[in-house]
Simulated scan of single mutants.
Amino acid sequence: MPRTLPEPSVDSFDLTVILSALADPGRRALMTALYQRPDPIDCSVLAEEADLGLSNPTISHHYRVLREAGLTRTLVVGRQRIVRVRRDDMEKRFPGLLQAVLGSE
C-alpha cells in the first residue's frame, strides 16, 4: 500500500525555508524539471533525465530538503519514490511564487 512521506501542512509553510531550498542550484534544477512535468515521476528517473552530475546521496538530500520545505510530495510505492510539485498548496499560500522562480527557466 502506498504511503506519503512526512511533509509540512500548507499553514506551516515558511517562505524563508522555501526560498532557502530553492537557492541551491541543484535543488532548483530538480524543481524546474519537476515543475515542467504535468505528472508525478519516479525520483530516480527524473534525476537521470535532469543529468545534474551529482551523486545519488546528494540528489536524495536535495529531494528531502524540497519535501521538508513543502515544495514536493513524495509517495512511496514499493521501492519507488514518486515525486510531484505541491502546486495547489504553494499557490494557496504563496500565489505566483513557483511561476516567478521556476517558470522562466
Rank of each mutant, 00 (worst) to 15 (best):
Pro2Gln: 13
Pro2Tyr: 13
Glu7Ala: 14
Glu7Ile: 01
Pro8Arg: 07
Pro8Phe: 07
Ser9Asn: 05
Asp11Phe: 02
Asp11Thr: 01
Ser12Tyr: 00
Ser12Gly: 03
Phe13Arg: 01
Phe13Leu: 15
Phe13Ile: 01
Asp14Phe: 02
Leu15Tyr: 08
Leu15Gln: 13
Ala21Phe: 07
Leu22Phe: 11
Leu22Cys: 10
Leu22Asp: 03
Asp24Tyr: 02
Asp24Leu: 04
Pro25Asp: 06
Pro25Glu: 07
Pro25His: 03
Gly26Ile: 07
Gly26Leu: 13
Gly26Cys: 06
Arg27Ser: 07
Arg28Ala: 06
Arg28Cys: 12
Ala29Glu: 14
Met31Pro: 12
Met31Asn: 05
Met31Ile: 03
Thr32Asp: 03
Thr32Gly: 07
Leu34Asn: 15
Leu34Trp: 13
Arg37Ile: 02
Pro38Gly: 15
Asp39Leu: 09
Asp39Phe: 06
Asp39Lys: 09
Pro40Thr: 08
Pro40Glu: 15
Pro40Arg: 13
Ile41Lys: 04
Cys43Val: 03
Cys43Met: 11
Ser44Gln: 13
Ser44Ala: 14
Ser44Val: 11
Val45Asn: 02
Leu46Val: 05
Leu46Trp: 06
Leu46Ile: 07
Ala47Lys: 04
Glu48Val: 11
Glu49Gln: 14
Ala50Glu: 06
Ala50Met: 09
Ala50Trp: 10
Leu52Thr: 04
Gly53Phe: 15
Leu54His: 11
Leu54Asp: 05
Leu54Ser: 12
Leu54Asn: 06
Leu54Thr: 04
Ser55Tyr: 06
Asn56Ala: 13
Thr58Phe: 03
Thr58Gly: 07
Thr58Cys: 03
Ile59Asp: 04
Ile59Met: 08
Ile59His: 02
Ser60Thr: 08
His61Asn: 11
His62Leu: 01
His62Lys: 03
His62Met: 05
His62Thr: 00
Arg64Ile: 03
Arg64Asp: 10
Val65Arg: 10
Leu66Trp: 01
Leu66Cys: 04
Arg67Tyr: 06
Arg67Ala: 12
Thr72Lys: 09
Leu75His: 05
Val76His: 03
Gly78Gln: 10
Gly78Tyr: 09
Arg79Asp: 12
Arg79Ile: 00
Gln80Val: 02
Arg81Leu: 13
Arg81Asn: 14
Ile82Leu: 15
Val83Lys: 10
Val83His: 10
Val85Gly: 14
Arg86Phe: 12
Arg86Leu: 14
Arg87Ser: 05
Arg87His: 09
Asp89Ala: 15
Asp89Glu: 15
Met90Leu: 15
Glu91Ala: 14
Lys92Ile: 00
Lys92Gly: 00
Pro95Thr: 04
Pro95Ser: 05
Gly96Cys: 02
Gly96Asp: 02
Leu97Phe: 11
Leu98Asp: 09
Leu98Ser: 08
Leu98Asn: 09
Leu98Arg: 10
Leu98Thr: 04
Gln99Ser: 10
Gln99Arg: 11
Ala100Arg: 14
Ala100Ser: 15
Ala100Lys: 12
Val101His: 06
Val101Thr: 09
Gly103Met: 13
Gly103Cys: 13
Gly103Pro: 15
Ser104Thr: 08
Glu105Val: 02
